[in-house]
Each structure stands twice: as structure tokens, then as C-alpha cells.
């Protein structure tokens, strides 16, 4: 019987603590029943071994007592997990490349291949690990990305409308760029700026440094919305409103950035980008800072115009979609989120 005791003990090691004693007691009784029925006397060790082999390996037997369908990340969430993991991987690689580029640009120092490999070795598993943890939590709370089990009417299927289909490429691009900028702003805030002279001193943009918190918040909101859109696959009223809100936030921040640059430039006696360029031969050192800041103001000004136009287009699309459909099925929230 020693073998049976050892077998039952080993099965028990892999069973949940709560049900362990009861299942062990039943298993022992079932094994003895089987032996008595077959042998009818004190069994030989070979006979016990044969029976235990028939029952199966302890781990396998214990596993059969667990509820079915135990997953870290189940089939319903897996496609979204693959998508997000791929995006995060691309963004981490992009951010690393950018960081190496910035290091090279600032310090004129090419990163050593081994050092590069080491930093990738650290960053890739940790970022993928975070994604796994987030999805494992979603799995634990049984969050489902599809509205499975909910009543639906085929007539409510949305008309095929290109304007309502989320363009995956655009969203993925947005997420990758967003994460790259976010990583640079959060981890290398001092590297957002420009060289005052080729190979010379590096000037960190003081206006951007002032608004890093707001810029990061706006980027996070945009990334979150893009991931949600990839999941939903269609634009709806809710997502359009959210997009307009994040766009308005970007517009406001861009406006503040342009204003901040204008104030900085006014304090440094600049009268405009081209005027500064004309005066360049007469200035040294500080003149380059003014030109750099003028360039930043110009870039943010262009971004402000583009963002404002995009926001207007989004408001127009939402109005059109609502007038056309009365409501947008894409706006339905996912079940059990």
C-alpha cells in the first residue's frame, strides 16, 4: 500500500488546497476498490504499479480535477493580446533606436553593440511582461472583447461604410509614434531640444519642459483611444466624441506651446523666424537659440493648424454619421468591461 500512499500524496500536491483532502480520500478508496476487484487478496507490487499506470501520472490526474478552460490569456482575448504585444514591441524597438540616435547626436558616441543588446534584453521582456500581466488581469475578471451571448438583431448590422471602419494602419502608427514620443519625454526630457552650433552645446527646450505633464497625459489619452479603436474596429458616437475630446486637448496644448514659445522669443528680443535668420551673421551663441526656438514655434504652429482641421473633420463626420443612422452601432460598449 506504500505505493498507493505515495501516489495519492503526489496527486494531492497538485490539487487545490481546499478540495485536496476530500479528493485524496476518494482517490485512495477508488484505488483500493479497483485492486480488490481485480486481485481479491493482498496485491503484489507489480499489480499496484499496473493499476497506477492505468490511472495516469499524478500531475495529469490532478489536472483533470480542475475546472475546464483555465487560461492565463484565453482564446477570446488572445487576438487582441497579439496585436497589443506587437505594437508594444515595435514601440519599444522604435524608442530604443531613437534613444540611441539621440545619444549619438548629443554625445557623438556610438552605442556599443553589447550594450545595445543588453538594453534590448532588459526592455523587451519587461514591456511584454507588463502586457501579459494586464491581459492576465483582464482574463481573471473574464473581460470579453466581443459582445458574445448578447441578444442581437441582424437588421441592426451596420451598413458597410468606409468612413466608419477604423483604419488599423493609422491607429497602429499613432500608437507607435505616441509611445516613442512618450518614452523620450518621460525618460529623456533633457534631450528635447537642439544643438546651438554643430557639435556644440545642447539646448533643452524650456517651454516643452514646462508642459511635459500635459503632453504626456494627452499622448496617453490618444494611445488609449487608439487601442480601444483597434479593439472596436468601427467608429461610433462615443469613440468620435472621445477622439474630439483628445484632439481638443492636443489643440489646447499645442496652442499653449506656441504661446509659450512666442513669450520666450519676445523675452529674447526676436521679431520672427526670418528676421532672426537675417540677423544671424551679426549674432553669436544666443542667436542660434532664438532660431531653434523659432523653428519649434513654427513646427508647433503647423501642428496646431493640422490638429484643428482634423478636429473639425471629426466633428463633421460625427454629425454626418448621426444624421444618417440616428445612432451608430459602433458606439455600443463591449460587454462586461
Amino acid at each position: 500500500m506504500n505505493l498507493i500512499d505515495r501516489y495519492v500524496h503526489e496527486v494531492g500536491r497538485h490539487l487545490p488546497r481546499k478540495t485536496r483532502p476530500d479528493i485524496q480520500a476518494e482517490l485512495r478508496s477508488l484505488l483500493i476498490d479497483a485492486l480488490e476487484d481485480r486481485v481479491g487478496r493482498e496485491p503484489a507490487e507489480a499489480e499496484v504499479i499496473e493499476l497506477l499506470k492505468e490511472f495516469g501520472a499524478p500531475k495529469q490526474v490532478a489536472a483533470s480535477y480542475y475546472p475546464e478552460g483555465q487560461y492565463l490569456i484565453g482564446p477570446a482575448l488572445y487576438p487582441l493580446f497579439r496585436l497589443v504585444a506587437g505594437i508594444v514591441l515595435a514601440a519599444v524597438l522604435g524608442a530604443q533606436l531613437l534613444a540611441w540616435g539621440v545619444t549619438y547626436f548629443i554625445a557623438q558616441d556610438l552605442i556599443a553593440p553589447l550594450e545595445a543588446l543588453e538594453s534590448l534584453w532588459n526592455s523587451i521582456p519587461s514591456s511584454l511582461g507588463m502586457v501579459v500581466i494586464v491581459f492576465a488581469i483582464l482574463q481573471w475578471f473574464e473581460v470579453r472583447p466581443e459582445t458574445e451571448g448578447e441578444p442581437w438583431n441582424p437588421e441592426s448590422l451596420p451598413e458597410i461604410n468606409e468612413a466608419e471602419t477604423v483604419k488599423r494602419g493609422e491607429r497602429v502608427f499613432g500608437i507607435v509614434i505616441g509611445i516613442v514620443i512618450l518614452v523620450v519625454l518621460v525618460f529623456f526630457p533633457e534631450s528635447v531640444g537642439f544643438m546651438t552650433t554643430p557639435g556644440g552645446e545642447f539646448f533643452t527646450n524650456p517651454v516643452i519642459a514646462q508642459y511635459i505633464g500635459w503632453i504626456s497625459f494627452s499622448l496617453l489619452a490618444g494611445i488609449g483611444l487608439d487601442i480601444y479603436l483597434l479593439w472596436q474596429r468601427r467608429w461610433g458616437t462615443t469613440t468620435r466624441i472621445a477622439k474630439i475630446a483628445t484632439d481638443l486637448l492636443s489643440v489646447t496644448i499645442l496652442f499653449l506651446l506656441v504661446q509659450g514659445h512666442t513669450a520666450w522669443l519676445a523675452n529674447h528680443g526676436s521679431s520672427g523666424f526670418f528676421a532672426a535668420l537675417e540677423r544671424l551673421p551679426d549674432t553669436i551663441g544666443g542667436g542660434w537659440q532664438v532660431i531653434g526656438m523659432e523653428a519649434f514655434r513654427l513646427a508647433f504652429g503647423v501642428a496646431l493648424i493640422i490638429s484643428s482641421l482634423e478636429t473639425l473633420v471629426m466633428i463633421f463626420r460625427m454629425a454626418r454619421a448621426n444624421l444618417k443612422n440616428g445612432y451608430s452601432p459602433g458606439a455600443l460598449p463591449p460587454s462586461r468591461v
Binding site: E26, L27, S29, L30, D33, A34, D37, E54, F55, G56, Q60, V61, S64, Y65
Partner: peptide, 24 residues
Amino acid sequence: KYGYALINSLAERGLDIEQGTLYP
């Protein structure tokens, strides 16, 4: 019925089920 008796009962009627399947 207890587990082993059920296995036998099913087997007698022509349905062989593995013990590792039936008990869980």
C-alpha cells in the same frame, strides 16, 4: 453508487469509461 461501482455498472452495459475521466 460509488465511483468504482459506477464504472463497473457502465462497463457491464457495454460502455467502457476510463477511471481518470469518470471520477473528475
